[in-house]
Write a protein that binds this DNA or RNA. Structure first.
Lengths: 245, 245
DNA sequence: TGATATCCTTGATTCAGGTCAAAGAACCGC
DNA sequence: GCGGTTCTTTGACCTGAATCAAGGATATCA
């Protein structure tokens, strides 16, 4: 279990725009101030997990969703046959556990990639709340269909793209997600190991490494170990255009 | 009249169950008779689509989910770059459109693979209904997280499995889904073209064909064109066990 | 500070599955 | 039944990425 940190207001709602305390999610939520307060009471803000620690694990009873506040999380599924697949990387402002919403148990595991602060959203309480606050239900539906669509994008990536395209996609995805958080989109830290990237993209570690160095020599990116120092967003993007048809 | 006693309508009832058009969904739903009646009013039962016809199309306004009653449907997404990926095959008793639930537009298209009867579930009406029938909301949450998990399984399939494993997975999946519908699990009709199978599994058509004939010669399956005549479920299943680790 | 495990890169080799090509088989409208 | 699609199979060949192997780079911890 992650260590508890004292309840603080760092997840404060911005009163101007009516986002909920899940506000990092950047989805507008029109609720009254009163409802907003009740929502805040439910959300249990801030536990900290060290690198490698599990936020939750597959086949354990589902209790909460989790919003990442700092750090980074990877989620994964494991089949009966023992295959292990990373299903996503989650950055601050993103929510994990949606795949298990209203299921008996978690449908996968979530592991901290580095020291991460995570706020817990207990589902039993939220469920009853969402009857009183219709918008909230709507909100979660939206998040879930977003999640389904992410999965479909991933499928497309895994079945139809070359190694270079996969890496380009990942870098661009990270870039735009950092940007959305008002962080530099062409210089950031890769929170995950090459190994994890490889698994996520369905490649061998060696291939990831090779393609990354190839990007370097083509001037598409400057990457030093885990730190991305510059990206040619244009150039990477143009890799994705399939010339045919 | 006294209190209405909630009746448990198991949605796994035979397709002829005339209580609820959603009945094919095979998920237990505990609602009162009255609620069930109202639900039935909302659901618009039975439009028929010919082979190749679109039930809905990507980037058109989302209006309804659809439950397949007979026939078969394929769903697909298309990216800005023009990649086309089939995201699923839907058999009678399954629901499509969940990925777009509460989104502005459909996140993909749905095309009939053969003459299919499909019942429409208009979301605007269902939304207000689900406010009054808590179980219904729960029901849809469940369906959606199921859908996310399907997607994750697909990702795993596409990134980590060999051509043989992919085909085996598909055959086994179809088999168990037919079985759930009280149909023979080892002899059924493949509703989709090799082309579609290939696209779905991330393979070339030729590979699909080759693997299928290899299955024949190994006695794992007897397949004649689009009709599966016999399957060695045991044998196919054992293909999926990854021996390593 | 050095010992040790983990992570990352690079090279050489191999192979599963893609691509190209072409011939049957099934289906459709007339 | 007949010409034209569209679907399916089979063969020959080629390539992108996996695998095997091994040497650097980083991190972790006593």
């Amino acid at each position: 279990m992650g260590e508890r940190i004292p309840t603080r207001h760092s997840l404060a709602l911005s009163p101007s725009c009516n986002h909920c305390s899940l506000s990092n999610l950047c989805l507008p939520l029109a609720v009254s101030d009163g409802d907003m307060g009740r929502l805040d009471e439910v959300v249990n803000r801030g536990a900290v997990y060290d690198r490698g620690q599990a936020i939750f694990q597959q086949h354990t009873p589902f209790r909460s969703c989790y919003a990442v506040r700092s750090g980074a999380i990877k989620t994964s599924v494991e089949t009966a046959e023992g295959d292990y697949q990373i299903t996503g990387f989650y950055l601050p402002g993103e929510i994990i556990g949606l795949d298990s919403l209203h299921a008996e148990e978690y449908a996968g595991s979530a592991i901290a990639l580095e020291r991460s602060s995570v706020c817990e959203i207990p589902m039993d309480q939220l469920e009853s709340l969402s009857f009183e606050i219709p918008t909230l239900q709507h909100h979660f539906f939206q998040l879930m269909s977003q999640e389904i669509q992410n999965g479909q994008q991933l499928s497309l990536l895994l079945s139809r793209k070359t190694a270079e395209e996969r890496l380009a996609s990942l870098l661009l995805s990270l870039s735009s997600r950092y940007e959305r958080r008002q962080m530099p989109p062409t210089a950031f830290r890769l929170p995950m190991a090459r190994n994890d990237i490889a698994n996520f993209l369905g490649l061998a570690v060696e291939t990831v490494s090779r393609v990354l160095t190839r990007f370097q020599s083509q001037g598409l990116a400057t990457i030093n170990g885990r730190s991305v120092e510059s990206l040619d967003l244009e150039g990477l993007h143009s890799l994705l255009q399939s010339p045919g048809t």
